[in-house]
Design a protein around this nucleic acid. Structure first.
Lengths: 120, 120
DNA sequence: ATTATAGTTGAATGTGTATTCAATTGTCAA
DNA sequence: TTGACAATTGAATACACATTCAACTATAAT
């Protein structure tokens, strides 16, 4: 029997299994949210920034030197980390000091444990 | 004092902190390996494949219908998952049935726990 | 006020990669 | 042996995104 679903170039070999899996698998929206979350940690620069902040609060300039990219690059990445609520910051004079937003982030960095995955 | 490190457009604000972090932060190689690992889960298609296999063994055609992409696309992604040792397969006639390689992968998919991160 | 520096932002660029298409292999059935 | 179909593979394409550059804001010091 030929596949009924568009965009597909094949037959359904095991209709029952596909249907069963379709019912149990998380909805697309949730899978998207989770993959987006993993995406943040899939970039060396972001991961290095997070790991650095796990050790110490740092300003943009410090991070730029540490990671060896421009301040601009760091700033762009910090923006993404901010939007994901992974880092927080405080301003002091001309400097902006960044740090991890909470201990959940520490757990992810140090142990690879994403507790919040059940709420995504 | 101007930054001594190439590629950097800024001064070192807190030399002591940068030096201390540099000592404690994992080496670049390890950060690369970890980010590469996260990268696999940062793609909706791969994540959906893994989640499907967490529910049931499936062949390429089944997965193509489920995810709604070509068999070719699934096959390409399965190759990456194979190389990462996340899935295994068995051949039966014309079909190739894929499944998760072990329970560690189940833990990652279901609970977001990457036990192996300490060995990376 | 003026200068210097920290940080942010938007545009442009280059790279990486997911997907599709077309061609190929391998297996089964007629 | 021929036809049908599952799966793989490589090339081409399109898109996403990390980085840089340049321009700008803001703060501090002289």
């Amino acid at each position: 029997m030929v596949c009924k679903i568009e965009m597909c170039d094949c037959n359904v070999i095991h209709k029952e299994i596909v249907e069963a899996v379709k019912e149990q698998i998380p909805e697309d929206r949730r899978i998207s949210v989770i993959s987006e979350f993993y995406k943040i940690f899939s970039d060396s620069t972001k991961l290095k920034i997070l790991w650095a902040l796990d050790i110490s609060e740092m300003c943009v300039c410090d991070l730029a030197v540490l990671v060896n990219v421009t301040k601009s690059a760091i700033s762009h990445q910090l923006k993404i980390l901010k939007e994901a609520n992974l880092v927080k910051f405080r301003k002091e004079g001309k400097n902006v000091y960044y740090s991890l937003s909470d201990n959940c982030v520490k757990e992810i960095i140090e142990k690879g444990v994403i507790h919040t995955i059940n709420n995504m």
